[in-house]
């Protein structure tokens, strides 16, 4: 497990050298979006409209945080299950989205879109919402405020601990890791 620091906006050469299983610390601004926001993104695109946030060379974090208690910028902020975004992700990747942060395996369509676009998928630790919140230095709602926890936010993160789950070549740690330890 080699450890690398990655910044946003994503630099292609930096992610090209990453391999499934590398430990990465991400610093910079990232956008958030989960189920309802993704549906709205795709609806806007279908209507020929612009997205409310820039996604080109950006990283999206699949998260619906808890509300910030007084004095804090955000509440618990761990990843949600990425598979529910599989229906929408290829479209965003084809528009230049470079990195996704979530948890869990992705569909073949998403892996194909990752390879096609030389994008990357990072796993954050599911259920470590308190720990991950400590990496978030600021949070601002950018769109769909009515969605509450599901609103699109821009987060400033510092040293967010991630693991490369699917690299730009399509190597998938969820498959490789399981095969190594399966006895059944």
């Amino acid at each position: 497990m080699s450890k690398v620091i990655i910044h946003t906006p994503i630099v292609q050469e930096e992610i090209d050298s990453l391999k499934a299983g590398d430990v990465v610390y991400l610093t910079g601004t990232i956008i958030t979006g989960r189920d309802a926001a993704h549906k709205r993104f795709v609806d806007l695109l279908d209507e020929g409209k612009e997205l409310p946030v820039e996604i080109e060379n950006q990283a999206i974090f699949y998260v619906g945080p808890t509300p910030p208690p007084p004095g804090k910028v955000i509440g618990a902020s761990g990843p949600t299950t990425s598979g529910r975004m599989d229906a929408y992700a290829p479209r965003l990747l084809d528009l230049g989205l470079k990195a996704m942060i979530g948890k869990g395996q992705r569909s073949k369509e998403v892996v194909d879109a990752i390879v096609r676009n030389k994008a990357i998928y990072f796993a954050a630790t599911g259920g470590a919402g308190a720990l991950l919140s400590q990496c978030i230095k600021s949070a601002k709602v950018m769109a769909f405020d009515d969605l509450g926890a599901e609103a699109v936010r821009v987060l400033e993160v510092e040293n967010m601990p991630l693991i490369v789950a699917i690299d730009t070549k399509g190597n998938d740690l969820y498959k490789l890791g399981r095969e190594k330890y399966s006895k059944l």
């Binding site: 808890t66 804090k72 509440g75 618990a76 919402g129 308190a130 919140s133």
Partner: peptide, 9 residues
């Protein structure tokens, strides 16, 4: 920090 362990409460 008195925050939830997971955001999915």
């Amino acid at each position: 920090e008195q925050i939830p362990i997971c955001q999915d409460t």
